[in-house]
Nucleic acid binder design. Structure first.
Lengths: 227, 227
DNA sequence: CTTCGTTTCAAACGACTGTTTTAATCATCT
DNA sequence: AGATGATTAAAACAGTCGTTTGAAACGAAG
């Protein structure tokens, strides 16, 4: 039984298609995001990944373990965008003004949203997270620690710079939640949002409209709180 | 086959426990909210409702229809609070000022949130909706038409009164989405929100803090947009 | 070549799924 | 009383589920 494959064995065929394990992970990410854990059968997974049924148990032990591994994989690849947010923070820190921080927040929102909607087409980590939120498994801890907290930290610092008068960290947290909420909402409840906006599908233009609105709304709220 | 039971037959035993159909609906609401449609078997449902397995097909035709009927039932009982929102709207309409509308929006948010958090303990419609949003079924139409749209209408009118300068209905929709997003977020992603706020569980005080913040944030945003 | 460990394959396992069937039970009415 | 219709009950239906099996195919090392 070989469930865990380290990097000790180099592939002799670097030009070929991904091996069975990788294809299985990719198919699992797609199908678990679309149908959820319970509604996705290992037979569907195997067919979609062009892999024998037994490969699931061979590489991952069982179906549930494949699910956890899929989540880990999806969120670790989603974490690659973190430097971009860090650089937004650095840029704001240099100018060290409240206005620069507000600009940073606008960039943050744009980046966040474009990631979210890009994710719905390639890396499905948002959909997987939405599922986790409505029925949490132990995998939720991993998501919070490795994905949410690092991004949240950047936003908190930006808000702090934009509104140095806010001393209570709980208030900072609330402001951050309000911004994140608006971004996630348009992605997680997308089918309903589209219906309310009488649209059939997501266009880049629509995403831009969303991020512009959320940024305007939130920055107005941040500005308004002072006076 | 008798799937639809009207009120043409009066129960001869009004003092007894709810009949099989009602018990099945109640159990279904509980179990579908906890485990979702796919992970809940009709045998589990029947056992939980203390009903024979065949009762599911006898009263509802099939499992999926029971699910839709459960959603309809859960959301129709949640719709009983609608008059409260209508009265908020009426009150704002009387004064007919932008300030009165903003007060109405604050009331709307407070009412909305207290409903959401009360619902997580008694009627499970929020959990059911969260599930529907992350994996939509045909039942989503019912939710949108009978639950979301009526409430949304009130909020749109309040925003319109608060900001008569906004002409584009799409902009109104964005403002409404921003407010709804913040409310839903704190309920749907509750396990994460609690963690970020370093809290163990929801207290009435915490709910009040949330609604106060969302109202302040949103009203500031609405005010800020004018100037 | 043979040997070895790894990977793939088709087939089968028992358990569980939603649904149907057939008979039994019940309350109500003539 | 019997007859009628609605409801409940137990058993069986065909199909799918996750998982296991044992053998075939594979590449690398001796």
């Amino acid at each position: 039984m070989v469930f865990t494959k380290g990097e000790e064995m180099l592939k002799a065929s670097p030009e070929q298609r991904p091996d069975a394990r990788a294809r299985l992970l990719a198919a699992a990410e797609r199908m678990f995001a679309e149908q959820g854990l319970a509604s996705t059968s290992v037979r569907d997974l195997a067919r979609e990944a062009d892999v024998n049924i037994a490969a699931v148990n061979y590489y991952f032990g069982n179906k549930e373990n494949l699910y956890i591994e899929t989540l880990r994989h999806s969120f670790s690849s989603a974490r690659e965008v973190l430097p971009k947010f860090e650089s937004i923070l650095e840029q704001a820190k240099e100018k060290a003004t409240s206005e620069a921080a507000l600009d940073g927040i606008r960039l943050y929102i744009e980046e966040f949203l474009s990631n979210l909607f890009a994710a719905t087409q390639q890396s499905k980590h948002v959909v997987l997270m939405a599922r986790e939120l409505s029925s949490p498994t132990p995998a939720l801890d991993v998501i919070v620690e490795e994905f949410i907290l690092p991004k949240q930290r950047v936003l908190l610092l930006l808000i702090q710079q934009a509104r140095p008068d806010i001393k209570d960290p709980r208030d900072l947290q609330f402001y951050a939640s309000s911004i994140i909420a608006q971004c996630l909402h348009h992605c997680m409840t997308l089918p309903v949002v589209l219906r309310l906006h009488k649209r059939k599908k997501v266009t880049p233009d629509f995403v831009h409209q969303i991020s512009t609105h959320i940024a305007n709304f939130s920055i107005a709220a941040l500005r308004g709180g002072t006076q």
